[in-house]
Computed example of a mutant assay.
Amino acid sequence: MQIPKNQSNAPIDPSSPVELIVFIALPILLIVVYFVARKKRKNNN
C-alpha cells in the first residue's frame, strides 16, 4: 500500500491567457452577472 504524496501545484502563470481568463476574468464575470440578475429579480417583485 502506497502513501499518498503532496502534489506540487504550480502558481497561476500570469503570462498564460487561458489561466487569466479561467482564474480571474470568469469569476469576476460570474459575480457581476449574479448581482445584475439579483437586482433585476428584486425590481420585478
Rank of each mutant, 00 (worst) to 15 (best):
Q7L: 14
V33C: 09
D13L: 01
L26C: 06
I21H: 11
I24N: 10
I12F: 08
D13N: 15
P4M: 06
F35P: 01
P11W: 05
F35G: 00
A25Y: 14
E19D: 08
P27W: 07
K5C: 03
I28D: 01
I21E: 08
Y34W: 07
P27I: 10
L26P: 01
V22A: 14
F23E: 12
R38P: 00
P11M: 06
E19Q: 15
K42Y: 07
V22G: 04
N43H: 07
P4T: 01
K5T: 10
V36P: 02
N45I: 04
R38F: 02
N45P: 01
N45H: 03
L29K: 04
K5S: 12
L29V: 12
P11K: 04
I3P: 01
A10F: 07
P27R: 08
L20I: 13
Q7T: 05
K42H: 09
N9R: 11
N43V: 06
K5A: 09
P14L: 12
N45F: 02
K42I: 07
K39N: 09
V18P: 00
A37L: 15
K42S: 13
K40I: 15
I28F: 12
I3T: 13
Q7V: 02
F35T: 06
I12A: 14
V32N: 02
L29S: 14
K5W: 02
E19P: 00
I12P: 03
N44K: 14
R41N: 13
N6H: 10
P4R: 06
S16V: 03
Q2F: 11
N44I: 03
N45T: 05
K42M: 09
L20T: 05
N44C: 00
F23S: 11
M1C: 08
K39F: 12
N43M: 13
K5R: 10
L26M: 14
S16I: 01
N9G: 00
F23M: 06
I24F: 11
L30P: 01
P4L: 03
L26D: 04
P11T: 07
N43K: 15
P4A: 02
